[in-house]
Amino acid sequence: MLAKLMGYFLLGLVRVLTGSQARWYGCPPKAEQRIYFANHQSHADLVMIWAALPKELRACTRAIAAKDYWTKTPFKQWITTAVFNVIYVSRDRSAEEDPLEPLFEALSHGDSIILFPEGTRGNAEEPQPFKAGLYNLAVKFPNVVLVPAWINNVQRVMPKGEVVPVPVLCSVTFGAPIKLQAGEERRAFLDRARNAVIALRDV
């Protein structure tokens, strides 16, 4: 019950601070299994996409979150597990477990996921080169729909290094799905996926 109330509170807060405009430019909101992949410039990105999705899609869509950061305090861990139902991934390269294993498990169970293929937040106007995770997921789950998204202005709401959000009008633009082509090499696919995200910036 507390988690549900916190979810409603955060949803209202995000909408007050950002306007939380969802723009379905290349595809409609649809109850199908998807991987939403987007640019990443703020800790607020996770909440922004979550708030932009319709209620019925939020219930079956899980964001990816860095385990080392989001489990630092009991409150961070509670809000990411109880409210957002995130999938924790390890950024520890020395860990024996494949960092994508939790994502494989979630997709195998039918969840949709929100992925930031840069792997870390950037400060540039364009996303950093995408890491291999999106490609590996597309290979393993060819029937999951890959939807690019551009998050606009959210870095001004919660800039890197800041803890107090400021009201700024923001939007999330969802583009046309892409597919891994037969025989397409990893870097070519990742560059094409990145370009699909960038193309939504000026839509």
Rank of each mutant, 00 (worst) to 15 (best):
His43Ala: 10
Ala31Met: 08
Leu5Thr: 13
Gln41Asn: 00
His43Thr: 02
Phe37Gln: 01
Leu13Asn: 03
Ala38Gly: 05
Leu17Asn: 03
Arg34Ser: 01
Gly19Lys: 06
Lys30Phe: 07
Met6Phe: 04
Gly12Asp: 09
Trp50Asp: 13
Met6Tyr: 01
Asp45Gln: 10
Leu13Trp: 13
Ile49Cys: 01
Lys30Tyr: 07
Leu17Met: 04
Arg34Ile: 00
Tyr8Gln: 15
Phe9Trp: 11
Ala44Met: 09
Pro29Glu: 10
Leu17Tyr: 02
Pro29Ile: 04
Gln33Met: 06
Cys27Ser: 13
Gln21Ser: 10
His40Ala: 03
Pro28Gly: 03
Trp24Ala: 05
Ser42Asp: 11
Tyr25Gln: 12
Pro28Met: 05
Ala44Cys: 02
Ser20Gly: 15
Leu11Lys: 06
Cys27Tyr: 11
Ala31Ile: 02
His43Arg: 06
Leu46Val: 06
Phe9Ala: 08
Leu5Val: 12
Leu46Arg: 02
Ala51Gln: 10
Lys30Val: 07
His43Ser: 04
Asp45Pro: 10
Cys27Thr: 14
Arg23Tyr: 06
Tyr25Asn: 09
Phe9Cys: 05
Asn39Phe: 01
Tyr8Phe: 14
Met6Thr: 01
Met6Cys: 02
Leu13Ala: 14
Arg34His: 01
Arg23Val: 13
Gly26Asp: 13
Arg23Cys: 11
Phe9Glu: 01
Asn39Ser: 02
Ala44Ser: 04
Arg23Glu: 13
Leu13Met: 12
Ala51Pro: 06
Leu46Pro: 03
Ala22Leu: 07
Gly12Met: 13
Ala31Lys: 07
Pro28Lys: 07
Ala3Arg: 09
Ala51Glu: 10
Asn39Leu: 01
